[in-house]
Simulated assay, not measured.
Amino acid sequence: MKRLIFLIFLMNQNILASIDDANTPEVFQREYIYTNSELRENIQTVGVNTCVALVVLDDYGNGALAHFDAATNISSGLIEILSNFSDQSTLRVSLYGGQSPYKLERLLIDNLQQLGIEKVESIRNRSTSDSMNININLKTGKISQYDEFYSSSSYSERKFKLDRMKFSKRLYRHEDSIGGGDSVPDFRDEENNIFDFGF
Rank of each mutant, 00 (worst) to 15 (best):
M1P: 01
L4Q: 13
L4V: 08
M11D: 00
Q13C: 10
A17W: 04
S18P: 02
F28I: 04
Q29G: 03
E31P: 03
Y32D: 00
Y32N: 00
I33D: 03
T50A: 09
V55S: 01
D58C: 05
Y60V: 00
Y60R: 13
N62L: 02
G63N: 05
G63K: 07
H67Q: 05
H67G: 01
A71V: 13
N73E: 11
S76D: 15
L78E: 07
L78I: 14
I79T: 13
E80C: 01
S94R: 11
S94W: 06
P101G: 14
Y102L: 05
K103C: 00
L104Y: 01
L104N: 06
L107N: 13
L108Q: 11
Q113M: 06
G116A: 11
I117L: 06
E118R: 10
V120N: 08
R124K: 12
R126T: 03
S127E: 09
I136M: 10
N137S: 13
G141Y: 09
K142V: 09
K142W: 00
I143V: 15
D147H: 03
Y150C: 08
S151Q: 07
Y155H: 11
E157V: 00
K159M: 15
K159W: 13
L162I: 07
R164Y: 04
M165H: 05
K166H: 10
K169Y: 05
H174P: 00
S183G: 05
R188F: 02
N192V: 08
N193V: 06
N193K: 13
I194W: 07
D196E: 14
G198P: 00
G198Y: 02
F199D: 12
